[in-house]
Design a protein around this nucleic acid. Structure first.
Lengths: 180, 180
DNA sequence: CTAGACCTTGACGTTGACGTAAAGGTTAGC
DNA sequence: GCTAACCTTTACGTCAACGTCAAGGTCTAG
């Protein structure tokens, strides 16, 4: 995929985590570097860290988040604004993990988790609504398919599938057409 | 809904069908007149007829088609290009209904129906693929939710939900974080 | 310590999907 | 046959979501 000169391990897998630079993240997520920067600009995420020279450095949760964004965009067809709504202040919260991990008392931990649960529930609800719409569309398409089958049977079997008038001005009631 | 000056029956419901002008179609479908013209320009549909003065006139199948386009755009999140792919030469075929209705012999009718079945099958397959993707996303979100529940139980019950190392460097394998 | 690949922040260009205004015909009720 | 409401095409404007330079700094293997 790439040339031989640039594919070097670069960072030894230190004990901390293993941070990726933007191009690796792009390759990993299927996004472009421009898109990733744009998403940051839109407030959809904040890279885990910056190097001394201001290089963006991403951790595993950033990857997960970017893949989620990509899915929301490509698979669910949401706009970045909608995605921002769904992820909401998730960004800030997620960055508080360090604080969460270390000191905060149990009550605050509970609060953070409950908030996260609420966000995830909203995400699930939104996705399920969209899935329901899609199911409706699929059902409608299946209906059209059955309609075609009926017309086909009419031709083959000589039976008229929708008896009504003798002629052809819309027999049933609404859109009864063969060519869909 | 509308004002009193403009809502006049205009066309008596003649025997043929009842054709609508673009504004009525817009109100009926929830699209704008501009969008409808744009869709025509993009080859997504062709109005059933034109008046002597070149007014666009739409029939019931046009309405159905426009509602379908709107669903594909809003609910499924397809681009107009993708929608064009899905509807393909459906446009031309649909306009051949008159010919279909009247003269063409049975073999040609069969061919037209088989073609239409193939198109609808493709539409169904595409929609189902999208639905599957959405289901995956929903499942993933449910997984995150369960993860949060586990963390919550850990806090409340004092049990560690993912035993491994004593500390916290990613116990399971991938992204194990509480704030999602 | 240097070269080459990588990164940064602007800033302008592009494409899709329309919005909106202009200038002028069309229809239908009176 | 006049007028108000509707329509037509043409054309420029807009917004989102990036693409694509340009000018310059950074990182790391050699």
């Amino acid at each position: 995929m790439t040339d031989a000169t640039a594919s070097t391990p670069i960072l030894p897998p230190a004990g901390t985590e293993r941070l990726l630079r933007i191009q690796e993240v792009a390759a990993e997520t299927g996004l472009t570097t421009r898109a990733i920067r744009y998403y940051e600009e839109m407030g959809l995420l904040e890279p885990a860290a910056r190097s001394d020279g201001a290089y963006r450095l991403f951790d595993a949760s950033d990857l997960e988040r970017l893949r989620f964004i990509r899915s929301l965009r490509d698979d669910a067809g949401f706009s970045l604004a909608q995605i921002g709504q769904l992820l909401e202040d998730d960004v800030a919260r997620e960055r508080n993990r360090e604080r969460f991990r270390s000191t905060t008392d149990l009550d605050e931990r509970r609060t953070l988790i409950v908030d996260a649960q609420a966000r995830v529930d909203r995400q699930i609800a939104t996705l399920e609504e969209k899935a329901a719409r899609l199911t409706e569309m699929i059902d409608a398409a299946r209906g059209r398919r059955r309609h075609l089958d009926a017309h086909m049977a009419e031709l083959d079997g000589g039976r008229d599938p929708h008896p009504g008038s003798g002629a052809h001005p819309h027999p049933g009631g609404e859109g009864t057409d063969p060519s869909r």
